[in-house]
Design a protein around this nucleic acid. Structure first.
Length: 572
RNA sequence: CGGGCUGUGGCGCAGCUUGGUAGCGCGCUUGCUUUGGGAGCAAGAGGCCGUCGGUUCGAAUCCGACCAGCCCGACCA
């Protein structure tokens, strides 16, 4: 492509509302333009990257036996009603009506449609199957942000495994885990698989692939010593036991003005240290009022609460609601002698006694609380959020907490969709079984943005060859000089014949502009052809990563580039 | 949905306090000079000042409502 004929609208200044590095660089480099919140036009340069990412995903999916197909994006609402997700997904699902008034939704994922397609299967001999598709998904995100990292319309590769038994699901899951590692590594992403919560998708085991970045929205816990990795929504740690001393009787004592765990602990350091207190929270789980109990120095991880109770929505109760329910304000709440309410307690409180908690009367607390003797716990669960520096639950090593971008997620779904859609096959004995499904997703444009987040410098993007929009840029210094342009044209033609994707910067711009643009858009290799070198049949070759430059004879440069590019085109 | 901020040529901004002619830098067009790290000079083009309503002789500016975008929190590839 000749740059003089290309549409590559680079900007010197970033738009004021772009903040994430990938957002700024993709806009400045002329890869994308924003249309509305979470809605972007992918420009020619961006589309070239997108197609390369999609190509890598497709190759790896096909390599594990995936079969690509294309279900519609416009779905009848009844399908989503049948799975229960029409309501479960709430406002995130785009809903519309056709001219006859029939209700439709825009697909945000395709479990339902693939389950419908799977109705064609009738025998275990048809299994296993790996089906996938890669096209537009719609999600009415409450808050699109950070350029391509979180949008309302995006391309997702989603695949589905269909198996007769658990072992088949496990095998399909492991195939995907391997394929995903290869996909991300080929894109130049250092993605790690972490244990995750399955959330609204349903299912049991799930692994998220995370790329370390401060632009990420997830928090990940990893062990410095072993390979324990988990999303904070799931992570646990080894909690040291607390010595509770002598078991005492339940008591009651005034605590005027002491409304926080910290204040109470400071007033009574001997008996009410934070780890000797019970923190009582009031939550509404799908509208039901529930008491949530944690150790005083622990914080609630809401996703764990949702997972433990199979609830869909959790919110903290308001002060008014709490007052009406328990007769006291936050700061004096407790679960002792509370009847008729569901009480969910964190495992760290199991077996504890001689504790302090609120008395459900302002400015009064209880002492000598024995959790199992004095509180009617209806459900024990791991609810606390792990913090940085705690001991690893596997090996006792130190846990590290970092932010990550979720570039992929794989789930063991089980039989939820096959049962509701009636997808059964017969085994060799003629018995009927629901198909066991797995579901696996990768966000294509988010993957692009993640590459930029983790591979750039102060000059701009540094694309790996495997996903770069062009492999080489030829920067012509003084295109008006006949000998120079002739040499450059010759080089451009030779690169084309060698199958190298070259961007030919023949624009009548000053050299500084061309260098800056080439660096901004991140082309992996740059060849500078100018009158200075052409006289001696020499050109300059610069590697974008690190910007190291060497002089190369004009006659050798195609060979050198072919070797370099060929070695990296596939990705590591 | 709660909180904070912002809407003025393609991009970045000033003007608004104290109402009266819409301005600067970059980019764009033309010409000349220049040409190895974002050139210089000259002449130009380009703006319903987010929308609607109100106040006023007069509104980018004051008032109100709405809309849009960004950022921080609850959701997800």
């Amino acid at each position: 492509m000749r740059w003089s004929e290309a549409f590559i609208p680079t900007l010197r200044d970033a738009p004021a509302d772009a903040e994430a590095v990938s957002h700024v660089l993709l806009i400045r480099g002329g890869f994308i333009r924003q249309v509305a919140a979470g809605s972007y036009t992918i420009l020619p340069l961006g589309q070239r990257v997108r197609l390369k990412v999609a190509g890598i995903i497709r190759e790896e999916m096909n390599a594990i036996g995936g079969q690509e197909m294309m279900p519609p994006t416009l779905h009848p609402a009844e399908v989503w009603r049948k799975s229960g997700r029409y309501d479960l997904m709430g406002d995130n699902l785009f809903k519309l009506e056709d001219r006859k008034g029939a209700e439709l939704v825009l697909g945000m994922t395709e479990e339902e449609l693939f389950a419908l397609t799977a109705l064609e299967l009738s025998s275990y001999r048809d299994l296993p199957q790996i089906w996938y598709q890669m096209h537009t998904k719609f999600r009415d995100e409450p808050r699109p942000k950070s350029g391509l990292l979180r949008v309302r319309e995006f391309t997702m590769k989603d695949s589905y495994t269909l198996d007769i038994d658990r072992a088949g699901l496990d095998a399909g899951f492991e195939k995907h885990r391997g394929a995903y590692q290869r996909i991300f590594s080929r894109m130049g992403l250092d993605a790690v698989g972490v244990e995750a919560s399955s959330g609204a998708m349903g299912g049991s085991e799930s692994v998220e692939f995370m790329v370390r970045s401060d632009a990420g929205e997830d928090r990940i816990v990893t062990c410095a010593n072993c390979d324990y990795r988990a999303n904070v929504e799931r992570a646990t740690s080894a909690v040291a036991a607390v010595e509770d001393g002598e078991r005492e009787d339940l008591g009651r004592f005034p605590t005027p003005g002491l409304r926080t765990i910290k204040a109470l602990a400071e007033a009574l350091p001997e008996t009410a240290a934070p780890d000797r207190q019970i923190k009582t929270l009031v939550y509404l789980l799908d509208g039901e009022q529930v008491l949530v109990l944690l150790r005083g120095d622990h914080n609630l991880q809401e996703q764990k609460l949702l997972d433990a109770t199979a609830a869909v929505e959790a919110r903290a109760a308001t002060v008014e609601e709490i007052r009406e329910l328990l007769g006291a304000d936050p700061g004096s709440l407790g679960a002792v002698e509370v009847d008729g309410l569901k009480i969910v307690a964190d495992e760290a409180l199991r077996g504890r006694f001689n504790l302090v908690t609120g008395a459900n009367e302002d400015d009064w607390h209880r002492s000598g609380v024995d959790v199992e003797r004095d509180i009617t716990v209806s459900h024990w669960a791991d609810l606390r959020e792990v913090t940085s520096g705690e001991p690893c639950p596997m090996c006792g090593g130190t846990l590290d907490l970092w932010k990550g971008i979720e570039v992929g997620h794989i789930f063991k779904l089980g039989t939820k969709y096959s049962e509701t859609f009636g997808v059964y096959v017969q085994d060799e004995k003629g018995d009927s079984h629901p198909i066991i499904m797995g579901s696996y997703g990768i966000g294509v444009e988010r993957g692009m943005a993640a590459v930029v987040e983790t591979s750039h410098d102060e000059k701009g993007i540094v694309w790996p060859v495997s996903v770069a929009p062009y492999e080489v840029v030829i920067t012509v210094v003084r295109p008006d000089d006949p000998a120079t342009i002739e040499a450059a044209e010759g080089l451009y033609a030779q690169l084309g014949e060698s199958g190298i994707e070259a961007l030919f910067d023949d624009r009548e711009e000053r050299p500084g502009v061309k260098f800056a643009d080439a660096e901004l858009i991140g082309i992996p290799y740059r060849v500078v052809v100018g009158p200075r070198g052409v006289a001696d049949a020499m050109v300059e070759m610069t590697t974008r990563r690190g910007l190291a430059t060497e002089e190369v004879p004009l006659g050798d440069v195609v060979g050198a580039l072919s070797e370099l590019v060929a070695a990296q085109r596939y990705g590591i």
